[in-house]
Design a protein around this nucleic acid. Structure first.
Length: 570
RNA sequence: GCGCCCGUAGCUCAGUCGGAUAGAGCACGAGCCUUCUAAGCUUGGGGUCGCAGGUUCGAAUCCUGCCGGGCGCGCCA
């Protein structure tokens, strides 16, 4: 249990004591009661808002209620003072020993520090990337991939059971186009001159080796044949080759999905019929005609048709959604709803990174048991030394994911993608992100870790044993302030996990690194304030303990982001 | 036309289920290298939190309207 959680429990006990005395009503809602770090560290170590939150229910004013609560908190063993401040905050100061114990806990728990069980084993399905299997991933997929993967890491650390899933859209017309493109490459491999790739087919040369393999395996027996002879074979070969490509690209970012769910398979399984049946039984399906879509070009043909519609508007959607066409074929929404229903059967929470509009269907199909969070990840704008990188839609001038990783490295890509909230656009400058300066947060955080690693090496050279127990009583106020910041790591992880906001880890690590760099530089003015002090092994040992704890947290935090912690800078 | 997101320092952005004097980096000004890597640190100035109402003991945060920007809006995939 984290320090903040421990004090939240202690506070709860104090409030319980006040119930029989009639000070706090038993039925008072305590959900908003919080134990937090104060905004200003001068206020103390822990800020408690209980009196302000409960004053109304207790029919008194916040400061009066605080007067009842504070003395009982002050009586707790590690609390040195409980002051009432401002509108009714209770600010606790903890004894230095409390923080020394916390420091000890960080080092002892190592990688487990910051993990929690707030997810209590609930199942979360995180679906991310899900790019169409028609070619390599491009840079636009990077951000969703990183956000999804890091979020999955966070949820796992917070005690959820996580499934990482990729939805393969392998049933639509675009995979037939892919198959035709492959057939062209196949004929090319047989020595036929194919000239320019016709408009509407995929021109990328990643299909060349796949075509060559088919030529090798089957010779020319499909060369002059009609499409219905070879389409299915070529489609399945193309898709599996593209998925290999995609898996390879994802591996460059250190990403591995647990499950690749196939749309085609889903359709064959009859899941869509089942989903429709469920909705029908809830009277949420009717035959109807939709209005002409607003975004449609006025010149485009459009004829109203009677469709099988889901009453999506009953669940807050802006229009009812078609499930089936008049000829009985499933719409994209139809299979997508079925797909999410299938996921929901084995999960308590669903998270989608990217664009899907199936919340209403999930709510309807699961009677609200399963929630779906759709995280819309905004564009990444690419720059090179301030100049926008032009990306034409035509063929190969797309910057691929592999290009970016090759140029700046996995760690830089992953970290940078988490330096903004997911729903804000992100600028990514190739020149900027490889700079070794404070402007580059990746470097800045890794530099702090490298400095700590270097301390470990120096300590070993100086013959300092890490086996000896450190006397943490030797740490001063400034050093304990760093411990206090470190102690916020567990609640930061919990908050990032529950809000589905992995960027919070990046910002926290940046703050922690800044605080460490500042402490490090005390040694510039005064050698006695360095981490390793000559002829003072006890003090050095204690400070080393602090440095190791900070290093541990940076490592853990970076691991959640999927970024390696470097041992030294080069 | 409708929906979602955003509007915070000159620039790029954080801001804890509403809480105390709104923060960081860059840029600008002033300091700090015979060093455990100065690839860094310290410090100063700089804000009508888009605008106007509302809810509240308390609003950058919640609600309503307006202004400005982004994204999305097929029975396609």
């Amino acid at each position: 249990m984290s320090l903040y959680a421990r004090y939240a429990a202690l506070l709860d006990g104090v409030l319980d004591e006040l119930v029989p005395e009639g000070v706090v009503p038993a039925e008072a809602e305590r959900r908003a009661v919080a134990v937090e770090p104060p905004r200003d560290t001068a206020h103390g170590d822990l800020a408690i808002n209980a009196a302000m939150v409960l004053a109304k229910a207790a029919r008194t004013n916040p400061r009066a209620l605080a007067g009842e609560i504070a003395p009982r908190l002050e009586a707790l063993p590690e609390v040195t003072s409980a002051e009432i401040a401002g509108p009714g905050f209770i600010n606790l100061k903890l004894s230095p020993d409390a923080w020394r114990t916390e420091l000890d806990t960080i080092v002892r728990q190592a990688g487990a520090y910051g993990r929690s069980d707030i997810g209590s084993g609930e199942r979360v399905n995180v679906e991310y990337v899900s790019a169409n299997p028609t070619g390599p991933l491009h840079v636009g997929h990077c951000r969703g991939a990183v956000v999804g993967d890091s979020l999955a890491n966070l949820l796992a650390a917070a005690g959820y059971q996580v499934v990482r899933e990729y939805y393969v859209n392998d049933a639509g017309a675009q995979v037939d186009t892919l198959a035709r493109s492959l057939h062209l490459r196949y004929r090319e491999a047989l020595g036929e001159g194919i000239g320019e790739i016709p408009e509407g087919l995929y021109p990328g040369d990643y299909l060349v080796p796949v075509g060559a393999a088919l030529a090798e395996e089957f010779g020319d027996c499909f060369a002059g044949e009609d499409e219905d002879v070879w389409l299915e074979l070529f489609r399945s070969r193309a898709i599996s080759a593209m998925l290999d490509l995609i898996r390879h690209d994802l591996a460059l970012l250190g990403i591995r999905h647990d499950r690749f769910a196939s749309e085609a398979e889903l359709q064959r399984s009859g899941a869509a019929d089942e989903a429709l049946e469920v909705l029908r039984n809830k009277s949420l399906v009717y035959q109807g005609v939709l209005e002409r879509p607003k975004s449609l070009d006025p010149l485009d043909d459009w004829a109203p048709e009677e469709l099988t519609l889901f009453r999506s508007t009953q669940f807050g959607d802006d229009q009812d959604r078609p499930m089936q066409r008049p000829d009985g074929r499933w719409t994209y929404f139809g299979t997508d709803a079925a797909y999410h229903w299938q996921k929901a059967r084995e999960a308590d929470h669903l998270v989608n990174i990217w664009v899907k509009r199936v919340q209403a269907a999930v709510r309807a199909l699961t009677d609200g048991r399963v929630d779906l969070d759709v995280k819309l990840v905004q564009m990444v704008r690419l720059f090179r030394a301030g100049e926008p990188v032009k990306m034409s839609k035509r063929s190969s001038s797309f910057v691929t994911l592999a290009d970016v990783v090759r140029e700046v490295g996995k760690d830089v890509v992953r970290f940078m993608m988490l330096t903004r909230r997911a729903d804000a656009p992100l600028d990514f400058d190739f020149a900027h992100v490889v700079e070794a300066s404070q402007e580059n947060p990746v470097f800045y955080v890794q530099y702090a870790h490298a400095r700590i690693s270097s301390l470990g090496r120096k300590a070993a050279e100086a013959g300092l044993s890490l086996d000896a127990r450190a006397d943490l009583g030797l740490l001063d106020e400034e050093e304990l302030a760093l411990v206090k910041l470190a102690a916020q790591y567990p609640r930061t992880v919990e908050a990032a996990a529950t809000t589905h906001e992995p960027h919070r880890i990046a910002f926290y690590l940046y703050d922690l690194a800044a605080a460490f760099h500042a402490l490090w530089h005390r040694g510039n003015d005064d050698p006695a304030r360095r981490f390793i002090v000559e002829n003072n092994p006890q003090l050095s040992r204690a400070r080393l303990e602090l440095a190791l704890a900070i290093g541990q947290i940076i490592r853990s935090g970076l691991a959640l982001m999927g970024v390696a912690a470097t041992e030294e800078m080069r």
